[in-house]
Design a binder for these strands. Structure first.
Lengths: 136, 136
DNA sequence: AGAAACTATATCACAAACTTATATAAGTCA
DNA sequence: TGACTTATATAAGTTTGTGATATAGTTTCT
């Protein structure tokens, strides 16, 4: 059911210079504000050293900044820079464009049903992944 | 809109041993039957040598088989083995399980709207990606 | 307070998966 | 037939990720 939709959505993303883990990490930071590397690791399917190096690369590219956590000397707080936000926005627009082009081709009835389901889809997307998603 | 849904769907996929390009390639083969490497390249965001090695790895793992194309001596036809189909099915079930768990949590009204939109979503997913998806 | 145990991040060496450039073999066409 | 073109393979180098482990800071327990 939603299977094909997923791979379709993936392909609807115009080719970008950052991989999917990087993009969803950046998007997560954009939504939640500053987070520690450990928190980012928990949300992505990558190991801690992998996230450390990803954050370092994104910092070099100017998308994020790392600052010391005043509350915990071991931790590093990562947050999105204005350039990072602009980049996210740009990606968003490019995808929206592609998707809109296809949505426009739907029959009015289908379009209507899709609009009606937006709320449900948003609700779904807002749910954290719980079940067997993260194998212990 | 459909932005977050995408990353949600990605995370709803239980961790697997094959990356997303491999899975969608395998799924494509499952749907379309035997295809040449060049066709697979066109559908995935990967270069030809990358696809050649991916196919080689999947063949080693027993998910696909390569055969000479009787109609074109240069080409190789790739198709899914029974084990490959079983693997696809298994992934499908695992994902369906995770998704179903979440869908069940929706309010009846939202669930209804979602069901109503399935047809539209299927239609969308069946459309080839056209616009600026594949930069020349 | 002080030592032991735990936690957050970093570093290192190695492996996997790509990429670009190029080779090889097979088909196409004037 | 000979000059192109096309389909896949190979090779070398790069990027991105992993596992093991180090380092420094925080807790906990007595």
């Amino acid at each position: 059911m939603l299977e094909r939709l997923h791979s379709w959505l993936r392909q609807a993303t115009p080719a970008v210079e950052w991989n999917s883990v990087a993009l969803s990490t950046l998007a997560l930071l954009g939504r939640r504000g500053r987070l520690r590397i450990t928190d980012l690791v928990a949300a992505a399917r990558i190991t801690q050293p992998g996230m450390t190096s990803l954050v370092a690369r994104m910092a070099t590219a100017g998308l994020v900044v790392k600052e010391a956590d005043p509350a915990d000397g071991r931790a590093t707080l990562v947050s999105v820079t204005p350039a990072g936000h602009a980049y996210l926005e740009q990606i968003h627009e490019r995808r929206a464009e592609v998707i809109a082009g296809h949505v426009r081709g739907l029959s009015p009835a289908r379009l209507q049903s899709l609009i009606g389901a937006l709320d449900a889809l948003e609700t779904l997307a807002a749910q954290p992944i719980t079940p067997g998603a993260e194998p212990r």
